[in-house]
Design a binder for these strands. Structure first.
Lengths: 228, 228
DNA sequence: AGCCAGCCTTGAGGCAAGCTTGAGTTTTCC
DNA sequence: GGAAAACTCAAGCTTGCCTCAAGGCTGGCT
């Protein structure tokens, strides 16, 4: 998550500097800043950040207006940061589409935690863990944990599972799956695919013959059911 | 999002009742409650809720322990609710994997906003959906949801429905439909098409013999009536 | 009203898609 | 260089989807 681009918006330069330092120290490498509402919109449009920390009170255009403009075309996660304590402000923030609303003064560590929590939800594919009915998959380690036992994934199994996970819940066609393994010319590979699917099921499922997570869509393909 | 199942956990019965009322008034229809840590784990395992509101201080097992147990096998969104003001508690909450951490006393409206904000991230909207009179079709998953029950679509049913949906509202000729299934030479296939239409209606309609969505245009073909 | 054509409904049989297993081949790693 | 793991492929099996036809039911026409 530290590789996500963070845009920090605040018109108070001292606070902007402090925020920058907080994220820099934490290990974030791509940090953008803007010191006004209009500047924020410009940077957002040009640099396409992954997260925005938005101050409310700014001279040219307040945070609510900026957020409303952004929400017309984007669902980028936004945390609002402000000294305004009134409940009405908070509500307006959430109504405008904020993901979180934090009051100044704040604990740097809390801000980091909150940003991290939202990033995890907004970019779930970045955390590379899959919770299934009977098992938990760690894609980073390419291994499956089921009932405390560890099953390592082979290269092909890993590719298949990754592809299925990128389309979690949705049907992935047999052709599509074959293609991810052996490229464009996959005709005649269907039988091998079946074997890999079998091996995957032996690792992911309690009863591989009655799959609960890696399901067959007869005539269409396969799909992976993930839990929350 | 009001159709998501919310699990509320608090050992103070008065507060539990209040929380229940807050969500009920807001329009949430599926609300579960638990009055202790162990009870919470039991309900979570058995009922598979979509969101958990978790009090920290409980006699048998505190909220942090509950959350850690849940996080071993699930990434379900969790908002922690507590009277403990210390920063260390907050940090422990986030470290355990909480999505948000709200202090008591809190504004009911703020709680609702925060829950809504997290739900929006955790359950992003599915696309390629068809809203019909009695059912909702998810084309990505090739399944129909009617009265909460799931009916999977077969390959041919899927192709037909897709074709009808591409021409939503308009009449699609019998020949056209046959062609999408068995190609150019479809003569004599009309009877089989009728069978597929029947099967589709059994999944899409409340009364398959009196269709409201998949209508017959006698002598012409069929058409699909969609809402929205 | 009565008739006919077109559509509906049902059930049973066949067949193809997918499963499962094992054996042979290739790759990887010591 | 050898052993073990991973990959490929095919043969036989299983399952459930598809097909088709027979009989019933409408709506429209005379």
């Amino acid at each position: 998550m530290k590789d996500k681009t963070i845009l920090i918006v605040d018109d108070e330069l001292e606070l902007l500097q402090m925020l920058y330092t907080i994220f820099e120290r934490e290990g974030y490498t791509k940090i953008l800043t803007a010191a006004s509402g209009r500047a924020a919109l410009k940077v957002w449009r040009e640099k396409q950040p992954d997260f925005i920390i938005l101050d409310v009170m700014m001279p040219d255009m307040d945070g609510f207006a900026v957020l409303k403009e952004i929400r017309k075309t984007s669902s980028i996660p936004v945390l609002m940061l402000t000294a305004r304590q009134e409940p009405e402000d908070k509500f307006e923030g959430f109504e405008s589409g904020a993901d979180d609303y934090l009051l100044k003064p704040f604990l740097p560590k809390e801000l980091l935690f909150r940003v991290e929590a939202i990033l995890k939800r907004a970019y779930p594919k970045a955390c590379r863990r899959i919770f299934l009915e009977a098992a938990v998959v760690d894609l980073e380690k390419a291994q499956v944990c089921r009932h405390g036992e560890i099953f390592p994934l082979t290269a092909k199994e890993f590719c298949l599972l990754e592809k299925l996970w990128e389309n979690a819940g949705k049907i992935v066609t047999t052709g599509n799956l074959c293609e991810t393994i052996c490229g464009e010319f996959w005709e005649g590979y269907e039988s091998t695919l079946a074997t890999h699917i079998r091996h995957l099921r032996e690792k992911l499922e309690n009863d591989p013959s009655k799959p609960q997570s890696l399901l067959t869509a007869r005539g269409l393909g396969y799909r992976l059911l993930v839990r929350r």
